Simulated assay, not measured.
Amino acid sequence: MTRPQRIYAAEGGGEITGIIPRNNFIEYRWTPPGGKDTLLLNIAGAEQTGRLFVPI
């Protein structure tokens, strides 16, 4: 099993964090547009493309 190049973490404040696990570096933080509080429960990642899908 290969180690992932990036881990995505979603928390109750409506933010998704992209983390590089080899050095625990937070690469970016993303919040959905619109300025509304959003509970991000259902996210999916595409292994082949590295894209993250977030329903908003």
Score class of each variant (00 low, 15 high):
1 M>Q: 06
1 M>S: 10
2 T>V: 07
2 T>W: 05
3 R>P: 03
3 R>K: 12
4 P>C: 02
4 P>M: 01
4 P>F: 01
5 Q>Y: 09
5 Q>T: 09
6 R>V: 10
6 R>K: 14
6 R>F: 07
6 R>M: 15
8 Y>P: 02
8 Y>Q: 01
9 A>Y: 13
9 A>P: 04
9 A>V: 12
9 A>N: 07
10 A>E: 13
10 A>G: 14
11 E>D: 14
11 E>M: 04
12 G>W: 11
12 G>K: 11
12 G>V: 07
13 G>T: 06
14 G>V: 00
14 G>T: 00
15 E>V: 12
15 E>I: 13
18 G>Y: 03
18 G>I: 03
19 I>Y: 06
19 I>F: 04
20 I>F: 05
20 I>V: 14
21 P>Y: 05
22 R>V: 08
23 N>M: 02
23 N>A: 00
23 N>I: 01
23 N>W: 04
24 N>T: 08
25 F>S: 04
25 F>D: 04
26 I>Q: 14
26 I>F: 11
26 I>E: 15
27 E>A: 14
27 E>M: 04
27 E>L: 06
27 E>F: 06
27 E>I: 01
28 Y>T: 08
29 R>G: 05
29 R>I: 10
29 R>W: 00
30 W>L: 05
30 W>N: 02
31 T>F: 02
32 P>I: 06
32 P>R: 12
32 P>Q: 14
33 P>N: 08
33 P>M: 00
33 P>V: 01
34 G>W: 09
34 G>Y: 11
36 K>N: 08
36 K>D: 11
37 D>R: 08
38 T>F: 11
38 T>W: 10
39 L>G: 11
39 L>R: 14
40 L>F: 15
40 L>W: 11
40 L>C: 10
40 L>G: 10
41 L>P: 00
41 L>A: 09
41 L>D: 12
41 L>R: 14
42 N>I: 06
42 N>F: 15
43 I>M: 13
43 I>K: 03
44 A>M: 01
44 A>G: 13
44 A>L: 05
44 A>N: 10
45 G>K: 00
46 A>E: 11
46 A>V: 12
48 Q>E: 12
48 Q>T: 09
48 Q>S: 09
48 Q>M: 02
48 Q>Y: 04
49 T>V: 01
50 G>I: 02
51 R>N: 13
51 R>V: 05
52 L>H: 07
52 L>V: 08
52 L>R: 02
52 L>P: 08
52 L>D: 06
52 L>G: 08
54 V>R: 05
54 V>D: 04
54 V>C: 06
54 V>W: 04
54 V>T: 07
55 P>V: 09
56 I>S: 14
56 I>W: 09
